[in-house]
């Protein structure tokens, strides 16, 4: 029991959780509601004070409100992309692995190849160029950076499983193809997929933050962590609070997601299978932005 909720990583995660809760509660009762995009609700570049807990930016906007909005945007869009990549990658991977629709399998495999021949850092840029820098473009660019991992994981694993005795035994008691896939193959692979999803979340946060940081992400005034950091750069020496808070938010969430992924991975003993499949962790995560 203690083991499950203890450990240094877990304590960090719970501390962050608690802090966020306390902060949300405080904001709710103290009436610190400002619009994240409304300029001049306060003076320009005001340091943190009781009225503006995280200060104001160069346009006199409330940094705390902007950070909250940015968190929602960044994490929300990342979540949508990861879920999409997981569903589509998994479905196509199993479809191709089991040759469910024979004439489509070569097409799917070709798409799968495309997803991994582009370096992770180019693909998002190309997609934003194609689809524009709206929420849709963001989601698609994260999605396309991620889905291939799920696809190849599922493809390899579902093909590997076909030779395993317990799958053969499931057929030997009269199981149909679909029954075996749903009740045996899928439960066997689910933990692996979930761990990969958690770790992909880290990549997704990295992609959206990098795009925003480079100025080709969501356009102002919508805040994201990346754009907040980018916009704050000129004022780094005058107004540390503009840079520090979004960076802290970014680092903490990447660490928390990473910790969670590793934890699940170890708990379910699937780390070996996931390892080496998370792309982009070397280029597009927090280190590029900071």
């Amino acid at each position: 029991m203690n083991q499950r909720w203890g450990g240094r990583n877990a304590i960090l995660i719970w501390c962050v959780f608690g802090l966020v809760l306390v902060a949300a509660f405080y904001i709710a009762i103290s009436g610190h509601f400002y619009s994240p995009i409304e300029p001049f609700v306060g003076g320009k570049l005001q340091p943190p004070s009781h009225a503006f807990l995280m200060g104001t930016d160069e346009l006199g906007r409330d940094v705390l409100s902007r950070l909250i909005a940015a968190t929602g945007v960044t994490l929300g869009l990342s979540l949508v992309s990861v879920v999409l990549a997981m569903l589509i990658g998994t479905l196509l991977g199993m479809g191709a692995g089991y040759n469910l629709v024979p004439f489509l399998t070569p097409v799917i495999l070709f798409l799968g190849q495309i997803s991994i021949i582009f370096p992770t850092r180019w693909l998002p840029l190309m997609i934003v160029a194609l689809f524009g820098n709206h929420a849709l473009g963001m989601v698609l660019s994260m999605f396309f950076s991620l889905w291939g991992q799920f696809f190849w994981l599922m493809y390899d694993e579902s093909r590997g499983l076909q030779g395993r005795t317990f799958i053969q035994a499931a057929y030997a008691v009269g199981g149909t193809k679909w029954k075996v896939i749903i009740f045996h193959v899928f439960p066997y692979l689910a933990p692996t997929v979930l761990v990969l999803a958690t770790l992909s979340f880290r990549t997704a946060i990295g992609v959206i933050s990098t795009l925003s940081f480079l100025g080709i992400g969501l356009q102002p005034p919508t805040p994201t962590w990346g754009s907040m950091i980018a916009e704050a750069q000129p004022y780094f020496f005058q107004a540390w609070w503009l840079v520090v808070f979004p960076i802290v938010a970014l680092i903490i969430s990447v660490l928390a997601v990473n910790g969670l992924g590793n934890r699940f991975g170890k708990r379910w003993d699937v780390m070996d299978r996931v390892q080496g499949r998370t792309r982009g962790s070397e280029g597009t995560d927090a280190t590029t932005v900071t």
């Binding site: 395993r164 005795t165 317990f166 053969q168 035994a169 499931a170 057929y171 030997a172 008691v173 009269g174 199981g175 045996h184 439960p187 066997y188």
Partner: peptide, 19 residues
């Protein structure tokens, strides 16, 4: 399969779904 003809496999440790 499993009704009229059924099978016992060589290695029971690999013949059951581990989870």
């Amino acid at each position: 399969r499993g009704k009229d003809i059924s099978m016992v496999f060589q290695d029971p440790k690999t013949a059951f779904h581990p989870m």
